[in-house]
Write a protein that binds this DNA or RNA. Structure first.
Lengths: 115, 115
DNA sequence: TCGCCTCCTATTGACATTCGATAGGAACCT
DNA sequence: AGGTTCCTATCGAATGTCAATAGGAGGCGA
């Protein structure tokens, strides 16, 4: 047995943008905190999203013009920055998805050669 | 249509180790140069492996004890460092593969929710 | 023998991203 | 008043990739 038991999925650099974009696209506007919660839930116990990773990612994406943040009040009456995906963001998402599929395809191709 | 036509796959950070390990595992001992050629061939025109990325990766893997390099003569009579995967490397490969599958599964789960 | 091409290893600096730790404000509940 | 949850945010360290560059050694043709 391996001596560790946590076995979290660590992000592959560059994957986070795809994940965030996709999440915003399907679930609509979200704020960082909520996003983290949703994703963690979807990912079961395997992925723990670092706040210190997520926030910079959102800033990055906003600077690129792929998402846009607006301050609003939460259901729980707190100030939160809700991010919405932009048109450019949708295009970006498509590209990132394509990129992912390519790499995944390549890796799978290698992984399949079990001979 | 997108305005560009090359669309190379850039590596997701952390993927290279998996690829190299897998390649060595299935094709047996290889030197860096040959490895690059083989991989590029497998990946069609989509992946261009950077030498500047591959060499450090091999050093890294050797330091971890996952691969072992020995100098030998090539068919073309040149000195080359042939890398072989070690037992620890095989275990590492399994872990990396598992890790990849997890992340790929997660991303795919997200990607499937097309609205 | 000279020069060039292919084969092959290798390093360097810039850059981007992630991690882990840490900080703090504001609303709500007791 | 005090604690907890919600929520945003930043910092330093570590890591990995990229693009460019350097160079030696064998083989081959002129």
């Amino acid at each position: 047995m391996a001596s560790e038991s946590k076995e979290r999925v660590e992000l592959l650099q560059g994957t986070l943008d795809l994940i965030v974009l996709r999440a915003l696209h399907t679930m609509g506007p979200q704020h960082a905190y909520g996003l983290a919660a949703r994703l963690e839930q979807i990912a079961q116990p395997s992925l723990t999203l670092n706040q210190g990773t997520l926030y910079p990612a959102l800033v990055r994406l906003e600077q690129k013009g792929w998402i846009k943040g607006t301050w609003q009040r939460t259901e729980s009456n707190r100030e939160a920055k809700y991010y919405t995906i932009t048109k450019a963001g949708v295009r970006g998402l498509e590209k990132q998805t394509e990129r992912w599929r390519r790499l995944a395809g390549l890796v799978d191709k290698l992984l399949l050669n079990e001979g």
